[in-house]
Design a protein around this nucleic acid. Structure first.
Length: 281
RNA sequence: GGCCGGGUGGCAGAGUGGCUAUGCAGCGGACUGCAAAUCCGCGUACGUCGGUUCAAUUCCGGCCUCGGCCU
């Protein structure tokens, strides 16, 4: 018996994934399932380039703008949601089309993750607080005393992974290095059809710049200002959406709009480059 | 024509007689639960021709060039 199919459309921002997904979904009776870590939040539809109403009315779109931005999503949570949507599509006799540029999510969907328990929020918050207080170097040294294996493979600059390593040890009593020797679990069994969109770099850069300018023209500044007015914790993932900070500063008059756009465009280009690196691996 | 001040890697911008900042952009890479995050790596650049020196981007001179002032 052959496995049911899943079509994956991967590519950097502004590579035209969404439009292609829409066309394929129409042609192949598909369901478009989001694999972008920012588009999952119910926030900033313009700035995160969520598919417009028109597209969603044409073809079913799942996992777009459906999570509370006040609560961080995670790779594991997304995989769980995505698996459910894929199963639902199969049950409906439709082709699941997974679209997105978040490499970690896509990889986790295919390979699964080591079965590490969820870390209590208190431990996470406390860990980040300590890290912020004592600084990277001291934190790295402290990690080295408790978890030499992880400290050895993380540079002191890598605050995010150091925090993750620390909280896993604190919450489970086992090193993350140890956990990761446990085989990954939960990888989706399917017949994978993968399409990677990798436009020439020069064209990609131009597309990134053009798209950000279009977002601003579509009201991204107002959108950013309104979202920031909610006063959410700046450490939340949704608060790190590209351009949010810059556009917010522009809205408050702290930064010239042209300058804000230029900075955000540069950040977008850098992001696209990281995505390409991931896709090429 | 004269005087003065500049000419540094794609851009910005320090600096030094030998050890050749830095930032941004760019390029390559990593990636197991906040990933649009978080990191790692990569550039003998010093206008030009000569001189001084063991050694010149750095000192001296000519030339070119940019800017300012003067006639």
């Amino acid at each position: 018996m052959s496995l049911p199919p899943v079509l994956v459309l991967a590519g950097p921002t502004a590579s035209g994934k969404s439009a292609l997904a829409l066309a394929l979904a129409q042609a192949e009776n598909g369901v478009v399932i989001n694999a972008d870590s920012m588009q999952v939040y119910d926030a900033l539809p313009i700035l995160t380039a969520q598919p417009p109403e028109a597209a969603r009315e044409t073809v079913p779109h799942r996992l777009y703008g459906c999570l509370d931005p006040a609560r961080p999503c995670s790779a594991a949570q997304w995989v769980e949601l995505a698996r459910a949507e894929i199963a639902a599509a199969w049950a409906d006799g439709r082709l699941p089309i997974v679209v997105g540029g978040t490499g970690l999510y896509l990889e986790s969907l295919r390979q699964g993750l080591s079965p590490i328990p969820e870390i209590p929020a208190e431990i996470r918050d406390q860990t980040r607080a300590v890290l912020a207080e004592i600084g990277n170097e001291a934190f790295h040294a402290r990690l080295g005393q408790r978890d030499p294996a992880m400290a050895a493979r993380l540079p002191p600059g890598d605050s995010q992974r150091m925090a993750r390593a620390w909280e896993v040890l604190a919450a489970t009593g086992r090193s993350l290095a140890d956990w990761q020797t446990v085989p990954r679990q939960g990888g989706l069994a399917a017949r994978w059809l993968t399409l990677a969109l990798l436009p020439p770099r020069e064209a990609l850069r131009a597309a990134c710049d053009g798209r950000f300018a279009a977002m601003v023209a579509a009201g991204a500044v107002e959108e950013a200002a309104a979202f920031l007015a909610r006063g959410l914790d700046p450490a939340l993932p949704a608060m790190k959406v590209l351009g949010l900070r810059e556009l917010g500063a522009a809205a408050r008059g702290e930064l010239a709009l042209a300058e804000a756009v230029a900075v955000a465009q540069a950040a977008t280009r850098a992001y696209a480059k990281r995505q390409v690196t991931w896709l090429r691996h």
